[in-house]
Amino acid sequence: MQIVVNDEVHEVSAKTLAALIDELGYGGARIATAMDGSFVPVPYRARTVLRDGARVEIVAPMQGG
């Protein structure tokens, strides 16, 4: 299945958002996620089912003004 993560296309086997995060190597990172423009809190990642072409955003702390 193809998933767009931070604007890059990934071919993944993960079925859920939680599995996607592990598959892409974000395990243990301090990140937040959104799918198709909607925030997905940590407790919801494991039950958030991916669909082909889903757009996932993965963000982390960054410098800001």
């Binding site: 190597g25 982390a60 702390p61 960054m62 410098q63 800001g64």
Partner: peptide, 18 residues
């Protein structure tokens, strides 16, 4: 003040900033 930006799994720049 701080912000959020896209994180790369390889670089993990956000983790260092955190």
């Amino acid at each position: 003040t701080v912000s959020l930006r896209r994180e790369s799994a390889g670089e993990r720049a956000g983790q260092a900033f955190w």
